[in-house]
Computed example of a mutant assay.
Amino acid sequence: MTYCVGLRLNKGLVFMSDTRTNAGVDNFSVTKKMFTWNVPGERVITLMTAGNLATTQALVSLLDERSKVVAERNPTLLELPTMFEIARLVGSTLKEVISDSRPDGLEASSSFKASVILGGQVKGGGATMFMIYPEGNFIEITDDNPFFQIGEAKYGKPILVRAYDPEMSFEDTIKLLLVSFDSTIKANLSVGLPLDLQVYAKDSFEVIERPRIESGDKYYQAVSSGWGDALRNALAQLPGYELK
């Protein structure tokens, strides 16, 4: 399975994804789920994927290959003038991949489904994100819904809902996301380290490079153990229930 989060701040965008894929409880592997295209000074586009691995890899490969072809054809994600148009392109490409993957006569495409978080900025527009569904349609991030999750979202959502603030610094946001991911990893075997992280400062049109967060990362370990201790302390300070 997967867990990916894209979150919008007043300062920009933050992306985090796990890297675990599995085909049964005894067959785990590490696979990248975050992909970025960057034209310095002009655009940054980031994609995170969840769902059927063959579908998501085909989607990314098609988008990448078509962005390199110079010919008489429709504009690519490196040429389209807005993030909205890029979302439409990604949605139609995802729908194309799923349709092409279905054997003849198969009506349901659930085996090939995938979902995508798309985020970034094109010069002349604002930094934004979209959630793209297997059918090719999508929604855009809003002030009322300032983050998107795909994959195993339920375990890590409560901390995001309670603690998110659009004025947060990137540093505090990374801490918040690590708590969300740590809660998910502890609750679901199909989500695991290492984690990929990317920070985008709005209007910079540059990617802030970050290393992968491995299981031995000292900061991750400090956040994980510290959050556990904080929860136990908070629980102990709450008034006890009185049995009657």
Rank of each mutant, 00 (worst) to 15 (best):
C4L: 04
L7Y: 07
L7S: 04
R8I: 13
N10T: 02
N10H: 05
K11M: 09
K11A: 15
G12H: 14
L13A: 12
M16G: 06
R20I: 04
T21V: 14
N22R: 02
G24A: 08
G24H: 08
G24C: 08
V25W: 06
K32H: 07
K33N: 11
M34W: 09
M34V: 10
F35G: 01
P40W: 02
R43P: 06
R43W: 05
V44D: 05
L47V: 15
M48F: 02
T49H: 02
A50D: 13
A50P: 06
A50M: 10
A54I: 04
T55K: 01
T56V: 15
R66K: 12
V69G: 00
A71F: 03
E72N: 12
R73T: 05
R73H: 05
T76K: 01
T76M: 00
L78K: 12
P81L: 03
T82D: 14
M83Y: 04
I86L: 06
A87C: 03
R88S: 13
G91N: 06
S92K: 14
T93Q: 03
L94C: 08
E96L: 07
E96A: 03
I98N: 02
S99R: 13
D100P: 00
S101M: 12
S101F: 02
D104I: 03
D104V: 07
G105I: 11
G105C: 12
E107C: 01
E107Q: 11
A108R: 07
A114W: 07
I117G: 02
L118P: 08
Q121D: 05
Q121G: 10
V122G: 10
M129G: 10
M129R: 11
F130C: 00
Y133Q: 13
E135A: 15
E135W: 10
E135R: 13
N137A: 11
N137M: 12
I139V: 15
D143R: 14
D144A: 12
N145E: 11
P146M: 04
F147V: 02
Q149C: 09
I150F: 02
G151Y: 12
Y155P: 00
G156E: 11
G156S: 11
P158E: 05
L160T: 05
A163M: 05
D165P: 00
D165I: 06
P166L: 09
E167F: 05
M168G: 00
M168A: 08
M168H: 03
D172Q: 03
D172E: 11
T173W: 04
T173S: 14
I174S: 04
S180W: 10
I185Y: 05
A187P: 04
N188A: 10
N188V: 09
L189K: 06
S190Y: 13
L193H: 11
L195M: 14
L197V: 15
Q198E: 13
V199S: 08
Y200H: 08
Y200I: 09
A201E: 15
K202L: 02
I208Y: 11
E209N: 10
R212D: 01
R212I: 00
I213S: 03
I213P: 06
G216M: 00
Y219W: 13
Y220W: 15
Q221L: 15
A222H: 12
A222D: 11
S225P: 01
A230Y: 02
A230W: 06
A230R: 03
R232E: 08
R232H: 00
N233C: 01
A234I: 05
A234L: 10
L235H: 03
Q237I: 00
Q237F: 01
E242P: 01
K244A: 13
